[in-house]
């Protein structure tokens, strides 16, 4: 289990930078028509996603969402395979058949990103049931957004997990908008976490842009869940800097609001935290940032030289 030490924070900083550069590169590709379909970016939410994953054991499991790049990078991933997947290459995680919304790596406990809002709730229950039944000591962290907490599956899953005492953390990244609709227009509560009361489980609300707070809280609830006390609902308040998807003109919010959240850049926050607390030198972190940027360039190079999947593969892997 990761401890709150320099090594952990450096790794966290590295993964958050990877996520940021990865998505900036994707955005760049997208603008040039080099990404097929659409993509949902999580720029601004890196601490919420990466720090939560870092607080888990390596062999714990996550279910991811359509806005999942930071989540899966946070869980630990091969950037080359991930970039290749976004470019639809045979070397990608899903052999080019999943794309941005379906990055999965079962070998590191990533049960897959999910294109359906709320689609992961019940899958997380099932995955947690397996851990409970097989007594593996592993837990499941289920990523979802504020919008998904209005889905029926949210209710069914939290209720079932509660009565079965399943080892799962329901982790809501509340970025304040369900696509274009602000939270205030889709629920009459301020904090999604209060919904935990309905299921008789603990609920917590944290600052999702504060990597330290996220890490500590998830570490705490992970221990609680791992002990067999049943699920916990954690709400991490954060903000996506970019539109819902690449086709979003963002008429529903002001530039000022976006700028105010950029002031709370989670990567800068962690940078300053480490420097202020003498956990790292600026030069070290700046150098690391450059390395991260280069890692993404390397991933692009890998993806670019990879082949497209053969047409014959189109009928493969429908059935086991």
């Amino acid at each position: 289990m990761a401890e709150m030490n320099k090594e952990t924070l450096i790794e966290m900083y590295k993964r958050m930078n990877h996520a940021r550069f990865f998505e900036e590169k994707v955005s760049w590709f997208f603008a040039r028509g080099m990404i097929h379909g659409t993509t949902h970016l999580s720029v601004g939410q890196e601490a919420s996603a990466v720090a939560a994953c870092m607080a888990l054991n390596d062999d714990d499991l996550i279910t991811s969402t359509h806005r999942g790049h930071s989540q899966v990078i946070g869980k630990g991933i091969d950037l080359n395979k991930m970039m290749a997947e976004l470019l639809g290459k045979i070397t990608g995680y899903c052999k080019g058949k999943g794309g941005s919304m379906h990055i999965a790596d079962l070998s590191v406990g990533n049960l897959g990103a999910n294109g359906v809002v709320g689609g992961g709730h019940s899958l997380a229950c099932g995955a947690a049931l397996t851990q409970q039944y097989q007594d593996t000591g592993k837990i499941v962290l289920c990523f979802f957004g504020d919008g998904a907490s209005n889905e029926g599956s949210f209710h069914e899953a939290l209720n079932l997990a509660s009565v079965w005492k399943l080892p799962v953390i329901f982790y809501c990244e509340n970025n304040l908008y369900g696509m274009s609709v602000p939270q205030s227009a889709s629920m009459n509560i301020k904090d999604v976490a209060v919904r935990a009361d309905s299921y008789g489980i603990p609920g917590h609300t944290i600052d999702g842009n504060n990597a330290i707070e996220v890490f500590n809280k998830i570490k705490e609830v992970a221990a609680y869940v791992r002990e067999g006390n049943g699920p916990v609902l954690v709400e991490s308040k954060t903000y996506r800097w970019l539109g819902h998807s690449k086709s979003d003109a963002q008429a529903y919010r002001t530039k000022e609001e976006v700028e105010s959240w950029k002031e709370k850049d989670p990567i800068n926050y962690l940078y300053n935290y480490m420097v202020t607390n003498d956990m790292a030198e600026k030069e070290e972190l700046d150098e690391l940032k450059k390395t991260c940027k280069q890692d993404i360039e390397d991933a692009v190079a890998f993806a670019n030289v990879s082949d497209n999947p053969p047409l014959s593969s189109v009928t493969e892997d429908v059935y086991a």
């Binding site: 049960l111 709730h121 899958l123 229950c125 851990q131 039944y133």
Partner: peptide, 16 residues
């Protein structure tokens, strides 16, 4: 019913 089916899928993909 939604979580019965989804839970089955999640359990299945993780080894049950």
């Amino acid at each position: 019913e939604a979580v019965i089916a989804g839970c089955a899928a999640g359990a299945a993909v993780t080894g049950l």
